[in-house]
Simulated scan of single mutants.
Amino acid sequence: MSPELIAVLAVILVALVFDYTNGFHDAANAIATSISTRALTPGVALGMAAIGNFIGAHFGAEVAKTVGSGLVNLPTGRASLAIVFAGVLGAITWNLITWYFGLPSSSSHALIGGVVGATLVAAGEVLWGGILSDVVVPMILSPVVGFVLGYLVMLLVLWIFRNGHPGKLNRGFRWAQTASAAAMSVGHGMQDAAKTIGIIVLALYVGGYQSDAETIPEWAFWTSATVLALGTYAGGWRIIRTLGRKIIDLRPPEGFAAETVASGVLYFNALVLGAPISTTHTITSAIMGVGATKRLSAVRWGVAGNIVGAWILTFPAAGSIAALFYLIVRPLFAT
Rank of each mutant, 00 (worst) to 15 (best):
P3I: 04
E4Y: 11
E4W: 10
L5F: 13
A7D: 10
I12G: 07
A15D: 08
A15N: 11
A15Y: 08
V17W: 01
D19W: 10
N22R: 11
F24M: 10
A28C: 12
A32N: 06
T33M: 04
R38T: 11
A39S: 15
L40R: 03
L40P: 04
L46F: 15
F54K: 09
H58E: 12
A61Y: 13
A64G: 00
K65E: 15
K65C: 05
K65M: 12
T66G: 02
S69H: 12
L74F: 02
T76E: 15
A79S: 13
S80N: 12
L81R: 01
A82N: 06
I83S: 06
V84C: 08
V84A: 11
G87I: 04
T93P: 13
W94Q: 11
I97R: 04
T98G: 07
G102E: 13
G102V: 12
G102Y: 14
S106H: 11
A110Y: 05
I112P: 02
V115E: 03
V115G: 02
V116A: 06
G124S: 02
E125L: 14
V126T: 05
L127W: 10
W128R: 13
I131R: 00
V135N: 04
V135W: 02
V136A: 10
P138K: 03
P143R: 06
L149G: 05
M154W: 08
L155I: 13
L155G: 09
L155M: 14
L156K: 12
V157N: 07
L158I: 03
R162C: 05
R162L: 06
N163S: 06
W175V: 14
Q177Y: 03
S180L: 10
A182Q: 07
M184E: 06
S185T: 06
Q191M: 06
A193S: 13
A194R: 11
K195G: 01
I197F: 02
V201P: 07
V201H: 02
L204G: 09
V206L: 01
G207Q: 01
G207N: 02
G207M: 03
Q210G: 04
Q210S: 14
S211W: 11
A213T: 07
I216G: 07
I216V: 14
P217F: 05
E218Y: 15
F221T: 07
W222S: 14
T223P: 07
A225S: 15
G231L: 02
G231W: 02
G235F: 04
G236I: 01
I239C: 08
G244D: 08
L250D: 08
P252W: 01
E259Y: 03
T260H: 02
T260V: 13
S263H: 07
V265Y: 14
V265C: 12
A270M: 12
V272Q: 12
H281K: 09
T282A: 03
I283R: 03
S285A: 14
A286P: 00
G289S: 02
A292V: 03
T293I: 03
T293W: 10
K294I: 10
L296I: 08
S297P: 07
A298V: 00
A298Y: 06
R300S: 03
V303C: 07
V303M: 14
A304G: 13
G305C: 02
A310S: 14
L313D: 04
T314V: 06
T314A: 08
A318F: 00
A318P: 00
S320N: 00
Y326V: 01
Y326Q: 04
R330A: 15
